[in-house]
Simulated assay, not measured.
Amino acid sequence: MSFEICPLEAAWGNWAEWVAVLVGLIAAAGTIWVAWLARNTSERAAAIAEEARKIAQQQHAEAVDMRKANARIVRRLIVHEISELPVNLHILIKRCDRVLEVGVNSERDNVFLEDTLRSGTLSLLPGTEKSEDRLHNLPEEMGNDLAVLVGYSRTLNAMSSELLQYVKVIKRPSEGFSGLTVYTGDLRLIETYKTYVEKFSRYAIPTAVALRDFTQVEPRDFSQFNVDGSASPA
């Protein structure tokens, strides 16, 4: 008994083997391509991340430089104003002392008190108030101290305005008489006012010293303006 091999079947078998090999090669090539693509994508992602890191570092450095530049500008704008603050507060305290010592028994006394209170309605820190939104560029403690001084100054302005309400001008019908200035409040209010100015001064002196030191200007002796009589640091 004999078997015959059909040439068509043999050829088909060969083709099937070649197709299987080809499919295997394509699958292998696909795997290699996917691996290469993944590696390439990973390398690009790493490069992008590194570039982003460098950009972030540069932006941070620029922000730090900008903050330092703003701090230099602010401190130089206000250092002399802050340095004069203890002097101006000392003058105001002395004017309060005169009012409390002499009283308000005459037209002259009342006018002096009115002038004193009007001076208190004016900001002692106009430059610092204008730079208020940039104080955060300074070291945190110093920025906070300056903000506190701004708060003191505004409260002083408000107190002065309130006390001025007690200063009245009494009109008289006499020809050529402009009126008589009188203070209708209690002198204890002036004592409270003076106490507040002294509190303001106690905070102002060390802040002025610290700011002058930070700005690297020559030291200044504020001891003569110290309300407690003890020497203050230069």
Score class of each variant (00 low, 15 high):
S2M: 04
E4Q: 15
E17V: 10
V19S: 06
A20Q: 11
I26S: 12
V34C: 02
V34G: 02
L37H: 09
L37E: 11
A38N: 13
A38D: 08
A38H: 12
I48F: 00
A49K: 15
A52W: 08
A56R: 13
Q59E: 09
A63P: 03
M66D: 07
A71V: 03
L77F: 02
H80P: 00
E84T: 01
E84A: 11
V87H: 13
N88D: 00
L89P: 03
H90V: 04
I91M: 11
K94S: 14
D97C: 00
L100Y: 01
S106V: 05
D109I: 01
F112L: 12
L113H: 05
E114R: 15
T116R: 07
L117P: 03
L124P: 01
G127M: 12
T128H: 04
S131N: 12
R134F: 04
L135V: 11
L135P: 08
L146T: 00
V148H: 10
M159F: 14
S160T: 03
E162M: 09
Q165I: 02
Q165V: 07
E175T: 10
S178N: 07
Y183Q: 01
T184S: 15
L189T: 04
Y193R: 12
K194H: 08
T195R: 12
V197R: 04
K199H: 12
K199Y: 08
S201D: 00
A204I: 06
I205L: 01
T207Y: 07
A208H: 05
V209P: 02
A210L: 12
S223R: 15
S223H: 12
F225L: 10
F225P: 07
D228G: 06
S232H: 09
S232T: 13
A234V: 14
